[in-house]
C-alpha cells in the first residue's frame, strides 16, 4: 500500500480549486484557443524587426560576386545606414543576408565557431562553400520545423578550396535551398533577376560583372523603398575572398519620370 501524503493531496486540490475560481481551469475543448497557462499556444517570431533588403549574386569568369546595400531598416524607418550584410566565412566563402539583422549576426557566430574549429583542427581540411550552404539549409529547415525560424534569406558564394569550382547558392528562412548562376533575394528577385537574366554571361570579366551588379543595385535603389545607394560588392576567387568597403553608387534623378512623377499618371500611374 503506497504511502499517501495527505497534506500534498490537500494542497493540490486547493490549488486546482483556486484555478477554477479565477477561470483558468484546464480546458477540454479543442476548437477554441485554450486559456490555461499550461497549454496556451506559444507564439514565436512572426516577422522580422530590423531588416536588410536584397542581396544579389552572380558567377563570372574568375569567381563569384555578391552585392548588397548597407541599410538596416526598422519597419519603414531607415534605421541603420552602415551595416555590413556581406561577410567572409573562412577563407573561401562569402555570406550575404537579407532579413532580420540580429538573426544574421547569430548565424555569423555559428559559422565563426566552425571556422575556429577548422582552424583549431589544423588537419588540412578546408570547408567548401557548398558545405556552408548545406549546413545553413539544415539549420534553417530545423528551426522552421521547431516553429522558430531564423528570419533571413541568405546567399552563399565561394570557391571550393579543393576543386576550385565556383559556388553560388541560396537558403531562405524555411530551408528552401538551391544553386544557380545568378541569384537575388527579396525585391532583387523581382527587380534584379530580369536584368541579370538578360545581361549575364558565364565568361564575364570582373569589371563587367561589377558593372552589372551596380546597375541592378541602382534599379533596386530607385524602386525598393528599403534600399540604399550605399553598397558593398564582394568577390570570391581562387585567390581568396574580398569584401569591398561601402561606397556610394551614382544615381540620376533627371529622368523625366523622376523629375515629374505625375508624367505617367495618364497611363497606369507608374513610372
Amino acid at each position: 500500500m503506497p504511502k499517501r501524503h495527505w497534506p500534498l493531496y490537500l494542497s493540490l486540490a486547493l490549488f486546482l480549486r483556486l484555478l477554477l475560481m479565477i477561470g483558468l481551469a484546464p480546458s477540454r475543448s479543442h476548437g477554441a484557443p485554450s486559456q490555461t497557462l499550461m497549454d496556451a499556444p506559444r507564439q514565436r517570431t512572426q516577422s522580422p524587426i530590423v531588416t536588410g533588403t536584397s542581396v544579389i549574386g552572380l558567377k563570372y569568369k574568375d569567381g563569384v560576386m555578391l552585392a548588397a546595400d548597407t541599410l538596416a531598416s526598422y519597419g519603414s524607418l531607415a534605421r541603420y545606414k552602415s551595416v555590413e550584410r556581406i561577410r567572409p566565412v573562412g577563407e573561401s566563402t562569402l555570406l550575404g543576408a537579407s532579413g532580420e539583422y540580429s538573426d544574421f549576426q547569430a548565424i555569423m557566430e555559428m559559422l565563426e565557431d566552425q571556422t575556429q574549429e577548422d582552424r583549431n583542427m589544423d588537419d588540412g581540411f578546408k570547408r567548401a562553400p557548398a558545405e556552408v550552404h548545406s549546413y545553413l539549409r539544415a539549420v534553417m529547415y530545423n528551426r522552421r520545423n521547431k516553429m522558430n525560424p531564423l528570419w533571413n534569406y541568405l546567399l552563399i558564394a565561394g570557391v571550393n578550396p579543393r576543386t576550385g569550382g565556383f559556388f553560388l547558392g541560396s537558403v531562405d528562412h524555411i530551408g528552401t535551398a538551391y544553386e544557380d548562376d545568378i541569384l537575388a533575394t527579396g525585391f532583387g528577385a523581382h527587380l534584379a533577376l530580369p536584368i541579370l537574366r538578360r545581361r549575364w554571361r558565364a565568361d564575364m570579366e570582373e569589371g563587367e560583372a561589377r558593372a552589372l551588379l551596380e546597375d541592378c543595385m541602382r534599379v533596386l535603389f530607385y524602386r525598393d523603398c528599403r534600399a540604399l545607394n550605399r553598397i558593398q560588392i564582394a568577390k570570391a576567387t581562387r585567390e581568396g575572398v574580398l569584401v569591398s568597403d561601402p561606397y556610394t553608387i551614382e544615381t540620376s534623378w533627371s529622368l523625366a519620370a523622376f523629375a515629374q512623377p505625375k508624367a505617367g499618371a495618364d497611363t497606369d500611374g507608374s513610372w
Binding site: M121, D123, F125, A128, A130, E131, H133, S134, Y135, A138
Partner: peptide, 12 residues
Amino acid sequence: KYVYGTQLQANR
C-alpha cells in the same frame, strides 16, 4: 552527410 552534404573527415 545530412548537415554538410559531404563525407565526414575520417580524422575528425
